[in-house]
Amino acid sequence: MTLPPVASERAESASRLLNLTLGLHRIQSATPERSDSKPRLGDPAFDGVQVQRQATWLRLISITETFCADRLLDAAEAEVAPDGSPIRGLVWDKASTAAISSWPAMKDAYNSWYGIKPNWAKVETLIEVRNAIAHGLGELTRFQRRKRSSLVTKFNHAGVHLSGNRVVISENNLSDVRDGCSELIVLLDAEVAIRTARP
C-alpha cells in the first residue's frame, strides 16, 4: 500500500489561512458591537451582514487561487530551471504568466503540464459567486445575467440563493466554501507531489 504524500508547507499554510479567515469572520459576526442597523447616509438597502460574508468569501477564494497558482508554478519552475538560460527565462516568463492569468488557464495548465484533472465544478461555482461579489458588488454582473438560468441551477446546487440578481450568502455557505477550497488544495498538493516525485 502506497501512503499519500505528506502535505507541503504551502498547502498547510493555505489550509490554516482558510480556517483562520473563517474563524475570524465568526468572531466578528458574533461580536455584540456589530451593527445590523441601516446606515444613516447612503444606500438604505445596505446589508452589513452580507458585506461581511462577501468579504470572507472573497478572502477564501483568494487564498485558494494563490495556492493553486504558486503550487503549479513552483513545481514547473523547478523543472524548467529558467535561471539557467536567457531563452528558457523568456519562455518561462511568458508560459508562467499565461498559465495563471485566469482560473480556466490554470485548470488547463494543470492538465497539460501534469495531467492533473480534478473535478473543478464545485470551485467554479464558488468562483462565479466571487465574480458577482467582486465585479457586481454582490449582484450578478451583466455577463452573468446573460447566463442566469445556468447560474441559478449551479448556485442552487451549491446552496447559494439569489434574490433577484443579488447573491444572498448564509453562514453555512461560508463553511462550504472553506471545505471546497480545502479539498481542492489538498488534492492538488498531493497530485503535484506524485507527478513531480523523483524516482
Rank of each mutant, 00 (worst) to 15 (best):
L90M: 09
W113N: 12
S35M: 07
G138W: 02
K94L: 02
P199F: 02
D74P: 10
E9M: 13
E9C: 11
R130D: 00
L3G: 05
L126C: 00
G84C: 01
R53F: 09
A14G: 06
L73P: 02
S170L: 14
E139H: 06
A7K: 15
S62E: 11
I133G: 07
L184V: 13
I194R: 05
V168P: 09
L20G: 06
S37Y: 06
D83T: 15
V51D: 09
T64A: 08
F143W: 08
L22T: 11
I100K: 12
E124N: 14
G138C: 00
P4N: 09
N172E: 11
Q28T: 10
R40P: 09
L162C: 06
G180D: 12
L22H: 09
T97R: 15
K38T: 11
I194V: 08
I61Q: 02
T153M: 07
E77P: 00
R166I: 04
A121F: 07
T141W: 03
S149R: 14
G48H: 10
P44A: 14
A134C: 13
N165E: 14
Y110G: 04
S175K: 03
G180P: 12
S149M: 07
D108P: 03
R53V: 10
R195V: 11
A95V: 07
R71T: 11
V80K: 00
S101Y: 08
S149Y: 10
M1P: 10
L3C: 02
G23P: 00
N173H: 06
K94Y: 05
G23L: 02
G84L: 05
G89M: 13
K122V: 15
H25D: 04
N172Q: 13
W103I: 04
S175T: 02
P4T: 12
A98S: 15
L188M: 15
L20T: 10
D179M: 06
